[in-house]
């Protein structure tokens, strides 16, 4: 069984092998440590000139990444925790994203910022946030989320090809999770793609769905568990749509899904207030208002910082329990 961290590491390795202009820059990424979450393990040994380990300087390292891009490289910049992206916000938003268009002619900017996000590791308030909502709506800054049902080796080159800087959020609990290689996810769910590029994936039971969940990669384990429980405990069939791209949300790819489901719910680990889900709901309402069967549900974590103790985390972070309850109540 391949784990997500291994699949991601292999994807980075194959990209660096195939293209000598690909760099990886970040903190503590050299062997033998290989990064705080081991994503870069082995890469500094294989590509010593192109794996750049930096001092603890998040803003500075993103600046260096930007400068490498100007000198013709394609760059992965790893931030050890998503919470630290705020230290690098100027370089990401004011330099990388704006450079695409603020000089008149479009400038290609192949930069991918990778950052681990999310709770359930007990790291507490400054190492556990789900931060996508803080980046939504920046022109020329598409957002993505690592997923166990998407192939990173296919997704990453597509992102570089778009020529815009991007941020990939990687939910920490996924690293040790199984990477689904087969289209048969388990005995209940199978996978099919809703678009040509394989970016929007549908996990389905084969039954006519009573509810459809929209969730990014980090929520896939919770959604699969909730779907299984709803089926076994209440014979409620739940399909799950998993977009790789969070923003701009690929709203057109959901055309085949809309209209058939009594309940549509957006699930995310992010806390209440200015959520990714509200952005997705707004996009869906605008495009599919006439086809919607009912109000879209937004399922998210509570309006709170992320506490450290396990039981306190459990009280405020979204779980499969929350999803089961929300869907059962809505039906």
């Amino acid at each position: 069984m391949e784990r997500v961290v291994t699949a991601l590491n292999s994807a980075l390795r194959s990209l660096m092998e195939a293209d000598p202009s690909v760099y990886l820059i970040g903190e503590d990424i050299l062997d033998p440590y290989g990064g705080a979450f081991k994503v870069s393990r082995g890469l500094s040994t294989a590509f010593p000139e192109r794996v750049v380990s930096t001092p603890i300087s998040e803003g500075g390292l993103l600046g260096v990444a930007n400068g490498l891009v100007l000198s013709g490289q394609k760059v992965f910049a790893e931030l050890m925790f998503g919470d630290f992206t705020f230290l690098a916000m100027d370089q990401i938003v004011n330099f990388a994203a704006k450079s695409v268009s603020m000089y008149g002619d479009r400038m290609e900017f192949p930069l991918i910022v990778r950052c681990p996000v999310g709770g359930r590791r007990g790291y507490g308030a400054t190492h556990s946030q789900t931060i996508a909502k803080h980046f939504i709506g920046v022109p020329n800054l598409p957002l993505y989320e690592l997923s166990p049902v998407h192939d990173s080796a296919l997704m990453m080159p597509q992102i570089f090809q778009r020529g815009e800087p991007a941020v990939i959020f990687e939910n920490k609990i996924l690293y040790a999770h199984r990477q689904y290689e087969s289209d048969q996810i388990d005995d209940l769910y199978s996978r099919r793609c809703l678009d040509d590029l394989g970016e929007v994936v549908m996990l389905e039971t084969g039954e006519k769905p009573d509810a459809v969940l929209i969730a990014a990669g980090g929520m896939v384990p919770s959604c699969l568990e909730a779907g299984r429980r709803l089926m076994l405990e209440a014979e409620i069939a739940v399909d799950i749509v998993v977009p790789y791209q969070l923003y701009p949300f690929p709203v057109a790819s959901l055309a085949s899904v809309m209209g058939a489901e009594p309940i549509l719910a957006i699930v995310e680990e992010g806390t209440a207030g200015g959520t990714w889900g509200s952005e997705v709901a707004a996009a869906l309402y605008a495009k599919y208002w006439g086809q919607l069967q009912s109000r879209i549900l937004n399922i998210h974590s509570e309006d709170s910082i992320i506490p450290s103790a396990r039981h306190l985390e459990d009280q405020m972070l979204v779980s499969s329990d929350n999803i089961v309850r929300a869907i059962a109540d809505a039906l």
Binding site: L62, G63, V64, N66, G67, L70, S71, G72, Q73, Q91
Partner: peptide, 12 residues
């Protein structure tokens, strides 16, 4: 803003 960017360009 441009100083670390210049470091990256210089590294390239």
């Amino acid at each position: 803003e441009s100083v670390p960017v210049a470091v990256g360009a210089a590294l390239g």
